[in-house]
Write a protein that binds this DNA or RNA. Structure first.
Length: 420
DNA sequence: TCTGGGGTCCTAGGACCC
DNA sequence: TCTGGGGTCCTAGGACCC
């Protein structure tokens, strides 16, 4: 039987802030989202004061002041850096490791005799070397490891480590859980499960899997199996490439001018393009979206998105931001008070087929030569022979092979020869 | 005045193409 | 008179996670 450990950093962002400000030890600390909008992390002391996840800051300022809550703006660069350090310590405790999020990792604990002892050693070394406290849940499946971790965090007497290996232990732990304490079940799903008579984690575990599948779908059936100790999700040892890249921000105040919206779109394009480039990907489409302020119910509401295909060769002067602005023009409606805008890069593909010397600036002699080559090839062999994809570089182009591309080449000079 | 940002997966209808 | 069906893309929305 395989054994997994879920290692979860306690109050991660708040713990990171404490690393460099030892005076915050023992103090209630909260970390705020972008724009200092709402609470996204709380120290135990802040939790004890009743500060909730997602609480808006502007509605809680007085309360925070009254209780001496230390408020920090978020610093994701710092958190990412510390996360990397934690993971490198974890790797010393198991080579089979899945980084699940910025503050969590699943480790295979197969082959270790003293599981709890191994976990305690891990815990103290992470604390010693990085200063971050973690909790460890040990169980045969991811879902049970999540549950075990929850117990480890809650129960003061288990020293940050808890194992759910036997069915008796699992039953005892799940008895204290609500459905929504389970990984993957939130309010809506819990309500739907209630409709078919499933109101507790134990009822879910003991339900007929095929019936659950029929009524609730395959995802919930897998949860039943995982709760029984039957793994349905294995470790993902290598980080899969992103399928989408999103860049968005809320405006500090309502935006009514088109130009202001367009400026924000261009900023988002630049940030998303940076991420795209860093991951060596190309985008096949760009989607732009806007929304009004859903909290202002007296405002007229509007939410829309428009997508522009980037794989069409005809638009030889189109850059990523041109494409995004084209999409923005299609969804722009005057008279609304916009609160949020963003872009998503879609249909991402690895750009390893694209050699760096195939990248060139748009509107340059090289790019125009490239366009002539493509036109010639496509005229001769059909328009989809080669496709052009906007690159991650703003104002740059790269080549991506089409579905049928007998003339595909990764060499710039070859390509120019093909086109005559 | 002030309520985050970045992801995944799924579903469904309409448009459009062949 | 009988009036297809499969596939893909786009838009929109739902649900969940950290």
């Amino acid at each position: 039987m395989g054994v997994l450990a879920l290692v979860d950093c306690n109050n991660f962002y708040a713990s990171c802030e404490r690393l460099f400000q030892p005076r915050l030890k023992g103090q209630p600390v909260v970390v705020l989202s972008n724009n200092d909008g709402c609470v996204i992390a709380r120290s135990n002391e802040a939790k004890a004061l009743g500060v909730g996840m997602g609480d808006p800051w502007h509605l809680n300022k007085q309360k925070f002041e009254k209780h001496g809550v230390v408020v920090r703006s978020s610093n994701y660069t710092l958190y990412g850096d510390i996360s990397g350090r934690v993971v490198s310590v974890l790797r010393e405790f198991s080579p089979q490791l899945e980084v699940y999020s910025i503050d969590e990792a699943f480790l295979s604990f197969d082959g270790f005799a003293d599981l709890a002892g191994h976990a305690r050693a891990l815990r103290s070394r992470v604390l010693q070397w990085t200063g971050i406290p973690v909790s460890v849940g040990i169980a045969p499946t991811k879902m049970l490891a999540k549950a075990a971790n929850r117990v480890a965090k809650k129960a003061a007497d288990c020293d940050g480590v808890h194992a759910l290996l036997s069915e008796a232990e699992q039953t005892r732990a799940l008895e204290g859980f609500a459905l929504t304490d389970l990984w993957g079940i939130a309010e809506r799903l819990a309500a739907r499960l209630g409709e078919i008579g499933i109101r507790t984690p134990l009822q879910l575990r003991d339900a007929d899997p095929s019936l659950v599948r029929e009524r609730m779908g395959v995802a919930i059936e897998r949860m039943v199996l995982e709760l029984r100790g039957v793994p349905t999700q294995s470790l993902t040892l290598t980080t899969p490439a992103n399928k989408t890249i999103l860049a968005s921000r809320s405006f500090g105040r309502a935006v009514v001018e088109r130009q202001e919206l367009e400026e924000s779109i261009c900023t988002h394009v630049a940030r998303a393009a940076e991420k795209l480039r860093r991951q060596n990907l190309v985008a096949g489409a760009v989607m732009v979206f806007v929304t009004t302020n859903k909290f202002k119910t007296e405002d007229r509401q509007y939410a829309a998105s428009r997508t522009v295909d980037l794989s069409v060769a005809s638009a030889d002067t189109m850059t990523l931001s041109n494409a995004a602005l084209t999409a923005a023009a299609r969804l722009w409606r005057p008279g609304y008070r916009y609160k949020k805008a963003g872009i998503t890069l879609l249909a991402l593909a690895q750009s390893h087929n694209v050699q760096s010397d195939l990248w060139c600036q748009a509107d340059t002699p090289k790019s125009k030569a490239l366009m002539r080559v493509l036109d010639a090839i496509n005229a001769e062999h059909g328009r989809d022979t080669l496709k052009l994809a906007a690159s991650g570089i703003e104002r740059g182009w790269g080549l991506r092979s089409g579905q049928r591309s007998p003339h595909y080449t990764t060499d710039w000079d070859d390509l120019l020869k093909v086109g005559g």
